[in-house]
Computed example of a mutant assay.
Amino acid sequence: MADTVAEETRDRSGSVRRWQRRLADERQESQVYRDLAGRRSGTEREILLELAKAEERHAAHWEQLLGSDLGSPRRGNLRLRLLALLASRFGSVFVLALVQRAESRSSNFSDVDATAAMIADEHVHEEVVRGLAARGRARVSGTFRAAVFGANDGLLSNLSLVLGVSGGGASTATVLLTGLSGLLAGALSMGAGEFISVRSQRELLAASTPGTPAQQIVPDLDVDANELALVYRARGMSAEQAQRRAAEVLRNPAFAVSDAPGTAPDDHDVVGTGLSAALSSFCFFASGAAVPVLPFLFGLHPTVALVTASVLVGFALMLTGATVGVLSGGPPLRRALRQLAIGVVAAAVTYGLGLLFGAVTG
C-alpha cells in the first residue's frame, strides 16, 4: 500500500512539473502575441490580440489542473523567451515566420493532458500566423528576393572566379584585380537586370489592369442587356459567378471592374519598384562578392587567403540560407546546409577546372 502511494506521489510530482512548464509556455506565447500586436494596427492587431486571449484560455486549463500546486510564476522555454524578445523589439515578418514555426511544434500536440479543443486551437493558430506571415512576405518579396539572389550570386560567382584564377596559377595581384573586376561587373549587371525585370513585370501588370473608362461607364449600362458579365468571365470567373458579380455591380456601381480575379490592386506592391530592387540587388551582390576578395586585399599568403575566403563565404552562404528558411517558415539549419552544399560543389568544380587549365597551359 505504501509503495502504491509513493508511486502515485511521484507520478503527481512529474505531472505537476510538466503542467507548470506548459503553463509558463502558454503565458509566454500570449506575451509574444501581445508584443506583436503592440507594433501593429487595424485588422492584424485585432487578430494577434485574439490569439493572445486564446493562449490565455489554454493557460487557464493548466492552472486548473495544477490547483494548489500552481506555485510561483515560471519562465517559458528559451525559444519562446527569445521570440518574446524579438517581438518586443522588431515585430517583423521574420518574427512572424518564427512564431509560425513555433506553433507548428507546439508542445500541446503531444501532451496527454491537453484537450482536443486546445490541440485544434494550436492547428488553427498555425494557419492564422501563416496567413499573417504571408501578408508580410508579400510586402517584402520583391526587394527581399533581389537582396537574397544578389548576395548569393555575389558570394558564389566571385568565390568561383577567385578560386578558378588561383587554381590556374595566377599571382595574388591578378587574383585581386580579377575579384574586384568581377565584383563591379557583376553588381552592375545584377542591378541593371533586376531593374529591367521588375519594370517589365510592372508594365505587364499595368497592361492587365482594367482601364478607368470601363469602370466609369458602369452606371450607364443597360440593366437588361449588357456585356459586363463577359468582363468577369474573361478574368477567370465562371458564367454563374460572373452574372452574380455583374448584378452586384449594377445594383451598386461602387463595385469596380477590378474586383475580378487577377486584378488585385496590390500586385504592384508585391513585385516592388524597379529602383529599389536594382539598388538592393547591386548592394547585396557587391557585399557578397567582396567577401572572397577581402583576404587578398589584406595581403594574406595566397593559400591562407584562399582558405579564409572559402570559410567566410561558407558562413555567409549558411546565413543567407538560414534567413530564407526563417522567412519561408522552413527549418533554418536544413536551408543553411543546402546553401553551403551548393557553394562547396560550385567552388570545387571551378577550382578543379582552374587547376586543369593551369596544368594544360603551363
Rank of each mutant, 00 (worst) to 15 (best):
R10V: 13
S13Y: 02
S13K: 14
V16Q: 11
D25L: 04
E26T: 03
Q28L: 11
V32H: 01
D35Q: 14
T43W: 06
R45L: 04
R45Y: 02
E50W: 00
A59E: 11
W62V: 06
L66I: 10
G76S: 08
A84I: 08
F90N: 09
F90L: 13
S92L: 03
V93L: 02
V95W: 04
V95E: 01
L98F: 02
S104V: 01
S106E: 13
S107V: 02
S110L: 07
V112P: 07
G136W: 03
R139P: 01
A147I: 15
F149W: 08
G150C: 04
A151N: 05
D153G: 12
G154W: 09
N158L: 08
V165F: 12
T172D: 09
L180K: 06
S181K: 06
S181R: 01
A185I: 14
A185C: 09
E194T: 04
R199K: 14
S200P: 00
Q201C: 07
R202L: 15
Q215I: 06
D220Y: 09
L228C: 03
L230R: 12
V231C: 05
R233A: 14
S238C: 05
A256S: 14
D266G: 02
V271N: 02
F282S: 09
A289W: 10
F296L: 13
L300C: 04
T308Y: 05
L319H: 07
A322Q: 08
G329L: 12
G330P: 00
R335F: 05
L340A: 14
V345N: 03
A346R: 06
V349C: 10
G352F: 04
G358E: 11
V360S: 02
T361W: 03
